[in-house]
Design a protein around this nucleic acid. Structure first.
Lengths: 168, 168
DNA sequence: AGAAACTTTCAATAGTTTTTGAAAGTAGAA
DNA sequence: TTCTACTTTCAAAAACTATTGAAAGTTTCT
């Protein structure tokens, strides 16, 4: 396989993977393009390479910066901005995890907390059953939240050791 | 909070959580409705409760059965089908993980394997850099795949012990 | 200040996914 | 076999999400 074909294939596949992860296609494509490109790229470069409009490029670059997966980089003597991706895959995973914890786990935990406060006749079996199920979900989601919290605060060694332990 | 309000709120929230997990809103809503309902529900019950059409109900119930999160249950003397959800949250997590591993991790691993075969002039630095990045991604996604594989083959005790270890 | 070189915004458009509901299909009862 | 009570399908419509590109905004330079 030729380098250009391989790059293209990787960018497209990473793009479609993104869509099943709450990350839109263009955002994932820009990310993967930057991942496999050593030198910083300008918005123009990205637009040309992925054949997308200026607005689309701008919007998704900003989202990537927001997620801390990409950073601006200024080049001496150049007025325009250039962008580079975080290249350390462990860091990428850590940031994606942190962002999703904030956007998904935390809101659902708040809802679970609210609905667990359900009131009803003291001996209402339906209420008891509902509370029991919510409490089990709370327990599970709470554990997940604690693990992701731990992950976002740990370093790459922790991750490596953990994976080894899990698989050992 | 009243039981009916709490149920409604839980179903709606679980529905929107689903959308960030590659599970569509209705599918997640049906799942959560069945999760908090002890007795088996018919398609009619689900349609009425969520105010959705017959086609939509049918399609998403089938998808849930496909994911093994819901099963059909026949009732003596009744001709229609009833449905119940898997109530064990650990089992639910295990099945969702197994399904996503199959749908997302495995395809991307195949693409990574392909693009890692890239050929080019022996000392082409660009090719070397590309291969290096792909190899690091392969390594990471491969570990993730191995962990999810382990998880789908383990029992609830493994999960409990693992979480304890991670957080300890 | 004005012009040039960029970045950002946003209303319109395109594209994608979900939902509907009527029609077709299927299986049990008589 | 036909009737009836269901389930499934699928083309059309609706809802939602992403993308475009022109215009507005910003910053830097002279």
């Amino acid at each position: 396989m030729e380098l250009e074909v391989a790059r293209e294939k990787f960018v497209q596949s990473w793009g479609s993977l993104g869509t099943s992860w709450g990350i839109n296609r263009t955002m994932a494509q820009i990310h993967s393009l930057l991942l496999i490109t050593k030198k910083p790229l300008s918005a123009e470069d990205i637009m040309a390479s992925l054949q997308i409009s200026r607005g689309n490029a701008n919007m998704n670059i900003r989202a990537l910066i927001d997620w801390q997966l990409v950073r601006r980089e200024l080049q001496a003597g150049e007025r325009k901005e250039f962008f580079v991706a975080e290249k350390d895959i462990w860091e990428v995973a850590r940031r994606v995890t942190a962002e999703r914890k904030k956007r998904e786990l935390e809101p659902i935990l708040r809802v679970l907390e609210q609905v667990s406060q359900v009131k009803g006749p003291k001996d209402d079996e339906e209420v008891a059953e509902f509370k029991e199920m919510i409490s089990r979900i709370q327990d599970f989601v709470g554990k997940l939240d604690a693990v992701t919290e731990k992950m976002t605060k740990s370093d790459r060694n922790w991750f490596f050791r953990t994976v080894m332990k899990l698989m050992g």
